[in-house]
């Protein structure tokens, strides 16, 4: 299990210079702050990214939408609770309804749960403190648009930065999610073991990311968009975006 070789491996399959660029929308709420990192990640991968202001009522033509991290509306009331009422969220719901690919990260995960596009909820970290550190992610279901390019047994080393990242869903919901393959990523040790001490926030079953039943809306608390270049610590996050791109190519 190695992270070191990722960039070289990935660069060989990079789309740089490829004429068929996909267009990613990055939603911008007041208080979004990893929006720029999402755009940066997509551009590093050689595709196009556009900001979509929260007051927009239509998304225009987009191949996929990213709901970025941050503190939308200051996280007042509850993380993500106010953003779900933004005009753009109605457009996003339609986009998802029609099978469009949506990936939420961190606050984006919270917003998608609040909006009912994903099951479960994110609550305060069990430590009651904000946590910022690199973690290892193990991919549980590699048969989705968000995971299909991730090699078997490839751990991803990516940063987390959240205060309310403890994933929770009740037992029956979890059972249903498991039976539909909706659990995508779990926190793991550097050796790939799913142990309690690898879990940075107390999430139920060590869950880091999930998808909806249809498999076109997914989100995770860690930040793959902040791990797309070795220069900033890791390029493992590329695997998730590579998966989206591969899926979009296959769908063409």
């Amino acid at each position: 299990m190695t992270q070191v070789d990722t960039e070289t491996e990935l660069s060989t399959i990079s789309d740089q210079g490829n004429a068929s660029k996909f267009s990613f929308g990055v939603l911008q709420f007041p208080g979004s702050n990893s929006d720029q990192d999402c755009v940066n990640a997509i551009e590093v991968l050689g595709h196009e990214a556009h900001y979509v202001w929260h007051k927009e009522e239509s998304l225009g033509h987009l191949d996929a939408v990213l709901v970025p991290g941050g503190f939308s509306y200051g996280d007042y009331l509850r993380a993500g609770a106010i953003a779900r009422f933004s005009p753009v969220m109605r457009a996003l719901a339609d986009f998802a309804e029609n099978g469009g690919l949506v990936l939420g990260v961190c606050n984006g995960f919270q917003i998608l749960c609040e909006a009912g596009l994903l099951p479960g909820a994110l609550i305060l970290n069990r430590s009651l403190q904000f946590r910022s550190e690199f973690v290892h992610l193990s991919t549980v279901n590699s048969g989705t648009p968000f995971t299909k390019a991730i090699p078997a047994d490839q751990l991803m080393r990516v940063p987390i930065a959240h205060g309310e990242g403890c994933y929770f869903a009740d037992g029956s919901t979890l059972n249903e999610m498991e039976s539909h393959g909706q659990i995508l990523w779990k926190y793991a040790t550097a050796q790939g073991d799913l142990e309690d001490h690898a879990n940075p926030n107390g999430s139920v079953h060590g869950i880091a990311g999930v998808c909806n039943k249809a498999g076109n809306v997914a989100a995770l608390m860690p930040h793959p968009e902040r791990a797309c270049q070795e220069a900033i610590g890791s390029a493992d996050g590329q695997w998730i975006f590579r998966s989206l791109i591969e899926h979009l190519k296959d769908a063409k």
Partner: peptide, 23 residues
């Protein structure tokens, strides 16, 4: 660990070395 030090994709040397480096 209570400070987000990765946002903005610029941090090249994280807290814990003699000096932080950003791009």
């Amino acid at each position: 660990r209570q400070y987000d030090y990765t946002v903005r994709n610029g941090t090249m040397v994280h807290p814990g070395s003699d000096a932080a480096v950003i791009r």
